[in-house]
Design a protein around this nucleic acid. Structure first.
Lengths: 121, 121
DNA sequence: AATCTGTGTAAGGTATCACTTACACACTCG
DNA sequence: CGAGTGTGTAAGTGATACCTTACACAGATT
């Protein structure tokens, strides 16, 4: 989760994520959206995003197509859920983690809903 | 939101947040949970958390009591929601932002304009 | 007042970040 | 093949992150 959160902490990388959220985009086209920055800089950001699992790459002839990877932000969302949920729900979640010693995988889709419920302060 | 996300990207600070989530704790007691690290290091982490709005401080005689601040993670959660929600929900949220003229505008501006060009290639 | 206790700040070291320019490599098309 | 296009990698740089030790200072205690 560390890598994902660190990756998302950068505003340029967040902007890239939004760009590739709804479909694939080649690297060059992504870079066009950042005229204030060199193309290699964007390429390096893309590498960070891929390495942290937030984005997928796919070669397409000459180019390389990038696409958002939903799973990548799962653990980050789990952290927010943990913070926002009430103590009881947190204990419950801890118990669930006990049964899934590794990081829980597909179970967080439902967690997301619970955060929404408690996000209104 | 930048500051909050960057603050949360550090594992030590996340651990601190969990410590002060359910009640106030004095700095020293927080530092006790990190025997592998010097007390000033923890103090500096606390400063980062306060400056980024994730934590509140309150003087109490000799000591300083720290407490989690729910509001602090709101924008970070909003970003995750924006990523996860479907396109329709995202437009709805954008409309809400329109009448709620706070921040989170500069980053999404270039996206919207360009996505139209590239959404279907 | 003198001293302890709890805590923040200063100064400095090292690693990492986010860039830049220059170059390398793969694929396409004449 | 050879030139052009799309893209990643290498090398270097200034800024910043995270840590350490030494010190400063307010409030409590004696």
């Amino acid at each position: 989760m560390d890598e994902a959160l660190r990756a998302v902490a950068d505003p340029t990388r967040r902007a890239i994520l939004r760009l590739v959220r709804d479909g694939e985009l080649p690297a060059g086209q992504i870079a066009e959206h950042f005229p204030s920055m060199s193309r290699p800089a964007v390429s390096q950001h893309l590498k960070v995003l891929v390495d942290s699992g937030l984005v997928d790459v796919r070669p397409d002839g000459n180019r390389r197509l990038y696409r958002w990877r939903r799973e990548g932000l799962r653990s980050a969302a789990a952290f927010l859920d943990e913070m926002w949920s009430d103590r009881l729900a947190r204990l419950k979640r801890a118990a669930e983690r006990e049964e899934w010693p590794e990081r829980a995988r597909a179970a967080s889709q439902s967690n997301r809903a619970s955060r929404k419920d408690t996000s209104r302060d």
